[in-house]
Design a protein around this nucleic acid. Structure first.
Lengths: 140, 140
DNA sequence: CGATACTAGGCGTATATACACCTATTGCAA
DNA sequence: TTGCAATAGGTGTATATACGCCTAGTATCG
């Protein structure tokens, strides 16, 4: 359990580990953790342009675009025109998307709770704070 | 800079952020951070079977197999037969692979140092410890 | 020794990630 | 107002990730 020499590699391994856990728990709802996070943010942020949404999600614009495709294909969200700017495309949840998110929510909450129980509340809290600070750190 | 409600989503965002930084720094050597980690482990672990290597790298077996393909194609490593078990395939660095890793090493060290300076030594240390503990946590 | 369970790994498929380059549209300044 | 810089997003390409299923080879037990 020695820490990795490489901060990045260690973080990537841990992320794979945790992602597999959440994905497994969300699978009965037909979502993975990335899709769950996208739908959840769209639910609270209402219609939003792709670029602005990418910034909110700390995601590359083109990655977000590709990740939206299966969700749009399955009717969980719409990618429509923006009356105020014809370059922009507005993302919005459909009723099906809201229903899917609502169905997944208790699964996510249970996964979250189980993770915290296994990893420990103090560690969980510390990790959340650290990753938020890392994300806010300008590395360029 | 509020922490994410979802531990997994926060970790994933931070990992994307850090990965982009390391990838940018390693790009002059023609490697990304994942490839750098693979070559480095192979350099120190000598010839090793794919399955055992996947366990060492905390990586899915099939993911590792796919990630090895560009490296094998570029002549940085070989995937050869195991005399002791014909099901197994032994991975080994080529001289080109060793040279590529050696060329990338100072770039990695500089990235590591710059990250630590920006994020802070205490936070860096704490993060490394936490992700190592997370990886060691049984979530199944 | 032969049936069978187990193990190592590949392949098909689907999604995730992001860079470089492109087009369409907008805004601004001469 | 027109010309050009800036912006929004898509596309091509390459790699990353992992599940389910398959084949080949190994080991074990009767």
């Amino acid at each position: 359990m020695l820490p990795d020499r490489c901060s990045c590699h260690g973080l990537r391994k841990a992320t794979r580990h945790l992602t597999q856990f959440y994905d497994l728990r969300l699978a009965p709802a037909g979502l993975n953790i990335g899709q769950y996070a996208l739908l959840g943010r769209l639910a609270s942020r209402g219609p939003i342009a792709l670029g602005a949404f990418a910034a909110v999600m700390a995601m590359d614009r083109t990655t977000l675009g590709r990740n939206l495709q299966p969700l749009e294909r399955d009717g969980l969200l719409t990618v429509g025109p923006d009356p105020a700017d014809r370059r922009s495309r507005l993302l919005a949840l459909t009723p099906e998307g809201q229903a899917r998110f609502a169905a997944a929510r208790p699964l996510w909450a249970a996964a979250q709770q189980d993770f915290e129980a296994r990893f420990g509340p103090d560690r969980t809290q510390a990790l959340r704070l650290l990753v938020a600070e890392l994300l806010a750190t300008d590395l360029a």
